[in-house]
Design a protein around this nucleic acid. Structure first.
Length: 212
DNA sequence: CTCCCGATAT
DNA sequence: ATATCAGGAG
């Protein structure tokens, strides 16, 4: 099967499987999504969601984060791990938002990438899910793992994986594609022991086929 | 390539 | 107790 039709078939099946696939992070505005996504680095979305309700109540806007006590902010996000780094990223990023963008989150890739703690994965998530601007495909650990197992890409580097995916995934699917892989990655194609017997993509999966 | 780090599953 | 999960910066 041609790689392009394989992708289409995978997307078709995953859409039937996860008709309501959407981002797992809870947020009410672009700033909240930006902060939540920074917090989600090396941390599950469920854990981030446990921290953000109180966090967003305490820091309602970019100015509040920019003026926060670093120690206190770190304490507030502690359970997401790497909390000192993340506290710095959030405070510094919000300072830039206040100074350069009137407290708003920029709507383009270049400006987002200038924010500390923000690389393509975070920028893609914010642009797509807060603004509906789809310039790329957010490659997180799930997208990376499933794309490799399925045999859609050969690279291991997230940047290269994104470039390969953009070549084979039709542009109108760029938004839903990572959400579908994330849903499947969380439920079936687990990092540790994937539930291949329950997987409806079995016969399309290079990893499954090569070990059976 | 190393550092940042807690939570949960085993 | 210990392995596993999960992005970005320097």
């Amino acid at each position: 099967m041609e790689l392009n039709e394989k992708v289409l078939e995978i997307i078709k099946r995953l859409k039937e499987l996860y008709p309501d696939a959407k981002i797992a992070l809870n947020f009410e505005n672009p700033l909240q999504l930006l902060v939540a996504t920074i917090l989600s680095a090396q941390c599950t979305d469920e854990r981030v969601n446990k921290v953000t309700p109180d966090l967003f109540k305490k820091y309602p806007n970019a100015k509040a984060f920019a003026e926060a006590s670093l120690e206190e902010l770190a304490e507030d996000i502690k359970s997401t791990g790497f909390y000192q780094q993340k506290a710095r990223y959030i405070k510094e990023a919000c300072k830039i938002l206040v100074e350069k963008y009137g407290g708003e989150v920029p709507k383009n890739m270049e400006e987002l990438l200038e924010l500390p703690g923000v690389a393509r994965k975070t920028a893609n998530i914010v642009l797509a899910n807060a603004y509906g601007i789809v310039e790329g495909i957010a490659v997180d650990t799930h997208v990376s793992r499933l794309s490799q197992r399925l045999g859609l890409v050969k690279s291991k580097d997230p940047q290269k994986i994104e470039r390969e995916l953009l070549e084979i995934v039709p542009k109108e699917e760029w938004f839903i594609f990572p959400l579908l892989l994330q849903a499947h990655g969380r439920k079936i194609c687990l990092a540790k022991k994937p539930k291949c017997q329950e997987c409806l993509l079995k016969e399309l999966c290079d990893a499954y086929l090569s070990q059976n």
